[in-house]
Computed example of a mutant assay.
Amino acid sequence: MKICVFCSANQQIDPEFFTMTEALGKWAAENGHTIVFGGVNQGLMECVGKATKEAGGRTIGVIPTKVEETGRISDYVEIEIPCDNLTDRKQLMMDQSDVFIALPGGIGTIDEVFTVAASATIGYHHKPVILYNMKGFWNDLIALLDGLQAKGMIRGDWRQYIKVADSIEEISRLIS
């Protein structure tokens, strides 16, 4: 299975997020999954790529030209898919992947989650989107989604399109 990981490219974040991300990359490799990621050599992106490769797994980096121009490509990208911009990147990641997992991240990660989830709501795909709720990181977003649903702004239950997992074991159950 190709697992797309959306996550932070920042270094100055909770160190436990790196430990948990490393475990996810190792788990993916040990279970024969390929990691599709942003291909940047910083933050959780670098961490998941490195952990996956060091455990014998495969990685695919979908890398915008702006990242290439600044020399921030991870050494752990096995297959590089170049793209022009972030819109292209999201489409290529959707096309390449069977499931999407969002680790802690900021505006870019949230954009990716909602682009993929919104595409599912109107039937472009039926691929799982999972918030890996490391240490409760996504609790505020979950509360926001619950509030939007309570106000009638989301048709059906948002959990039809976005799942929440607190552990790798839960992720494993959601994608099997």
Results as ranks from 00 to 15, higher is better:
residue 41 N to R: 14
residue 124 Y to I: 13
residue 94 M to Q: 10
residue 118 A to M: 11
residue 68 E to P: 10
residue 42 Q to I: 08
residue 77 V to N: 04
residue 111 D to N: 10
residue 41 N to A: 10
residue 46 E to V: 07
residue 99 V to E: 00
residue 88 D to S: 10
residue 126 H to L: 10
residue 97 S to Q: 07
residue 99 V to H: 04
residue 111 D to V: 06
residue 60 I to W: 09
residue 75 D to R: 14
residue 118 A to D: 13
residue 60 I to Q: 05
residue 55 A to T: 05
residue 125 H to P: 06
residue 49 G to T: 04
residue 99 V to P: 08
residue 110 I to T: 14
residue 71 G to K: 03
residue 90 K to W: 09
residue 86 L to G: 07
residue 125 H to S: 08
residue 62 V to M: 02
residue 126 H to A: 12
residue 71 G to M: 04
residue 124 Y to S: 08
residue 122 I to A: 00
residue 71 G to C: 03
residue 75 D to G: 14
residue 66 K to S: 12
residue 109 T to F: 05
residue 41 N to W: 15
residue 119 S to Q: 14
residue 98 D to G: 14
residue 106 G to H: 10
residue 52 T to L: 01
residue 62 V to F: 07
residue 99 V to Q: 04
residue 60 I to A: 00
residue 59 T to H: 04
residue 57 G to F: 02
residue 63 I to G: 01
residue 121 T to E: 11
residue 42 Q to A: 15
residue 76 Y to D: 00
residue 77 V to W: 09
residue 120 A to M: 12
residue 110 I to W: 12
residue 121 T to A: 07
residue 40 V to K: 11
residue 114 F to N: 01
residue 111 D to R: 07
residue 44 L to R: 01
residue 89 R to T: 05
residue 93 M to D: 03
residue 95 D to L: 06
residue 74 S to V: 11
residue 60 I to G: 02
residue 49 G to M: 06
residue 120 A to E: 09
residue 124 Y to K: 13
residue 93 M to R: 09
residue 49 G to Q: 06
residue 60 I to R: 06
residue 43 G to C: 08
residue 108 G to L: 06
residue 113 V to Q: 01
residue 100 F to S: 00
residue 79 I to W: 13
residue 50 K to C: 02
residue 113 V to F: 09
residue 101 I to V: 14
residue 45 M to K: 05
residue 118 A to T: 14
residue 99 V to T: 15
residue 76 Y to C: 00
residue 43 G to K: 03
residue 109 T to D: 08
residue 55 A to I: 04
residue 71 G to L: 11
residue 70 T to Y: 13
residue 111 D to E: 15
residue 78 E to H: 12
residue 121 T to G: 04
residue 86 L to W: 10
residue 74 S to G: 06
residue 40 V to E: 08
residue 99 V to N: 01
residue 46 E to G: 03
residue 73 I to H: 10
residue 112 E to C: 09
residue 120 A to K: 10
residue 96 Q to K: 11
residue 108 G to I: 08
residue 118 A to V: 13
residue 50 K to S: 01
residue 99 V to R: 09
residue 78 E to K: 11
residue 89 R to I: 02
residue 120 A to T: 07
residue 56 G to R: 01
residue 117 A to F: 09
residue 47 C to Y: 10
residue 81 I to F: 10
residue 61 G to M: 00
residue 111 D to S: 14
residue 113 V to T: 11
residue 46 E to M: 10
residue 114 F to V: 01
residue 79 I to T: 14
residue 96 Q to C: 12
residue 73 I to L: 08
residue 94 M to H: 08
residue 124 Y to H: 13
residue 100 F to H: 06
residue 78 E to M: 14
residue 98 D to C: 05
residue 116 V to P: 05
residue 42 Q to D: 13
residue 117 A to K: 02
residue 56 G to M: 00
residue 46 E to C: 04
residue 41 N to I: 08
